[in-house]
Computed example of a mutant assay.
Amino acid sequence: MPLSEREITEPVDLTGPTGLLNPEAVGWTRTPLHRTDSVTHGLIGRTRTKRWEYWAITTPTHAVGLVVSDISYASTHGIFVLDRRTGEQISHDAVGLPGAASLPGTLGEGVSRSRTRTVQLEFTHHDDGTHLSASGPRVRLEVTAHRPQHHASLGVVVPWSQRFYQYTVKDLARPATGTLWVDGVPHELPAGGSWATVDHGRGRWHRDVRWNWGAGSGTVAGRTVGVQVGGQWTAGTGSTENAVLVDGRLSKVSAELDWRYDRRDWLAPWQVRGAGVALTFTPEHLRRAVTDLGVISSRTHQCFGVWSGRVQLPHGETLTLTAENEVYGWAGDVHQRW
């Protein structure tokens, strides 16, 4: 069923001084307008505060994931690289004290940085884009995620309660340029075929959560397209993180979508349906990541592949994606205890 989601068009504080959710912050935006500096304030639920910056980069030959995060009692950082041609994947991960992660209070108002023995990451925002720098034992990266003029992004506040909530920004289809080095071998990112996506998160979470996230970027009939779909974690809140971006223009999909996939065969096609959305995700590679550190545990199945199907846009046009369009990205299933 369609939902009635409120579009926010003026700056607003995510929380009050005690760290509880500001009811006026609940809604969605086309550009980041939420101030989140107070998300760590107050004692109620403070240890459930989660903050992160996750960047994904896709090219015709590689997929890259970079994360800097602070989950209150620890910080986690990582570099992931998939070679699409061979299926080889490289993971450099580090867990440290919260002070090992430096994250701005509000999106775009500072540098995100981690400095550990094995992983070094730095994300620096500029007016026209974000510079991403990463270094690990086998991987180095220097990439700029450009921000075209009038480029929209999806911001959503998901309210489980006044105590538990999440603010997410999904910024898709950012043109990417630069270089990825793997074992010292440079791989230049081809212009026009390389894309960056950011998942910016600030909130307070329940300990046990499950979610789906799917995204893809590419060129369809000469137009830049980004696909963003989510599931499970937003159910029953009145908010969703579903949208399509065409040449920088955002179309919000205000409905919960039905995800269907086979947990016994992750590489079988995934189906995402509902409210004018009929998408198929065809995987080419499965990344399975399991972490069990006692207090922290997670089980992730993330598939990389191509999106096809159709989406009905608000002004009546039907956006059609085919496998040949190469709207490449991922779809995932995550169970997190943190």
Rank of each mutant, 00 (worst) to 15 (best):
M1A: 13
S4N: 07
R6G: 01
N22Y: 01
N22S: 02
P23A: 06
E24H: 05
W28R: 07
W28K: 02
T29M: 12
P32V: 00
H34T: 09
L43N: 09
R48H: 08
T61R: 06
G65I: 04
I71P: 04
S72F: 06
Y73I: 05
A74R: 14
A74M: 09
S75A: 11
T76E: 11
G78L: 08
I79Q: 00
F80W: 12
L82R: 13
L82T: 03
G87P: 12
G87I: 12
E88I: 07
Q89A: 14
I90V: 09
S91F: 11
S91W: 09
A94N: 05
G99P: 10
A100Q: 10
A101D: 10
L103Q: 05
L107G: 03
G108N: 06
G110Y: 08
G110E: 07
R113H: 07
T116M: 09
R117A: 13
T118Q: 12
E122D: 09
T124I: 08
H125K: 10
H126R: 12
S133M: 09
P137T: 04
P137Y: 00
R140N: 03
L141T: 00
L141A: 04
E142K: 00
T144L: 14
A145M: 01
H146V: 06
Q149A: 10
A152H: 12
S153A: 14
R163A: 08
R163L: 06
R163K: 05
F164L: 11
Q166L: 14
V169H: 03
V169P: 02
D171F: 05
D171H: 02
D171C: 04
L172W: 01
A173Y: 04
A176F: 02
G178F: 03
L180N: 02
P190F: 07
A191G: 15
G193A: 13
W195H: 14
A196G: 15
R204E: 15
H206A: 08
R207P: 11
D208A: 15
V209K: 11
V209E: 10
V209W: 11
R210Q: 09
G218M: 08
V220R: 04
R223P: 01
R223C: 06
R223G: 00
T224H: 13
G230V: 01
S239D: 01
E241G: 04
E241R: 00
V244Q: 00
D247V: 05
L250A: 02
S254L: 00
A255I: 03
W259S: 02
D265N: 14
D265T: 11
A268E: 12
A268I: 10
P269L: 14
W270H: 11
G274R: 11
G274W: 06
L279V: 04
A289N: 13
T291P: 05
L293T: 05
S297P: 01
R299H: 10
T300L: 04
S308E: 14
G309S: 12
V311P: 09
G316P: 07
L321C: 13
L321V: 10
E326S: 13
Y328H: 15
Q336E: 12
R337F: 15
